[in-house]
Simulated scan of single mutants.
Amino acid sequence: MSVSTPTQEDFEELLLSCRYGDVEDIQQFVDKFGPDALAIARDDNGNTALHMVAGNGHTDALDYLLPLLPPSLLAARNNAGSTPLHWAALNSHLPAAQKLVQFPGGPGVDLIDIKNSAGRSPLGEAETVGWEEGAKWFVQVMNLDEGGGKEEEGELEPAEGADNIEVEIQDAEGQVAKITLGQKPSGGAGESKQST
C-alpha cells in the first residue's frame, strides 16, 4: 500500500483538526498519509500536532496520537522553545500534562525541566499563570535532588519518618513556589504559595 505525500494545505488542515480535537479528521489524515506524516507536521511557529492537542486539552486526540508518534516529539520545541507540555501548563490542562509526562517510552518527568526561550519550564509557566493544581502536580512527580522523597508509580512519597516536606522552587524570574508534600498541614487551606 502506497501512501500519498501531504501538501502544505493537508498539514494545515491536520493541525487545525488537532487544535479543535477532531479525532475523526486526524484519523482520516493518518489513513491517507500514514503515521510518519504526523511527525513532520508543523505550523509557521514550529508547533506540532502534540502542541495543538495538548495546548487545547484534547485528551482523546492525545490518546490517539501518542502511540503513533516518535517519543522524541514529546520534547519537540516550537520557535519559542516551548514543548507541548509548556502549552498544556500555560493553558492549565492537567489531564493532558499528565498524559505527556506519563507516556511510556517518552522522556517522562524530564519534560518538566525543559526551559523555553523565555527561560521558563512547564512548572514556571504554571506558576506564571497561577495554575496551582498543575504546579503542585509537577513538583510531586518531578526529579528532586533533595527532600528525601522517592518517585513510585507517578506519586512522590515522603521519606520514612517525615510528616511533611516543604519544597521551594525558584523560577527564572525569581518567583518562589512553596509546596508541602506528604500529609496535609492541619488547619491550612492553601497548599502552595507564591512569594517574591
Rank of each mutant, 00 (worst) to 15 (best):
L111Y: 05
D113V: 02
S82Y: 01
G34S: 01
D113A: 11
Q183F: 13
I179Q: 08
G174L: 03
L123T: 12
L156Y: 09
R19L: 09
K178V: 11
Q140C: 05
A126F: 02
A75M: 07
H58C: 01
A159H: 08
P71D: 03
F103W: 02
G119Q: 00
I179C: 14
G149T: 11
K178W: 10
K178I: 11
P158R: 08
G187T: 10
D44A: 15
G161Y: 06
A135C: 09
P185G: 12
P71K: 03
V141Y: 05
Q140T: 07
A159D: 06
R120H: 09
A118I: 14
L15R: 07
S186F: 07
Y64E: 05
M1R: 14
H93K: 13
L100Q: 04
A80I: 15
L94R: 04
W131L: 13
E152T: 01
A118M: 14
M142A: 09
G108A: 07
W87Q: 04
D60A: 08
V101F: 03
Q175C: 10
N79A: 14
Q194W: 10
P95S: 01
P6G: 11
S121V: 02
S121Y: 02
G190F: 08
A61D: 02
Q170V: 13
Q140D: 13
S82N: 07
M52Q: 13
A54L: 08
P35G: 00
A126H: 04
V176C: 00
A39R: 14
I26N: 12
A97N: 06
A89R: 13
G57M: 05
D31C: 11
P185Y: 12
D171A: 07
G119S: 00
G148I: 07
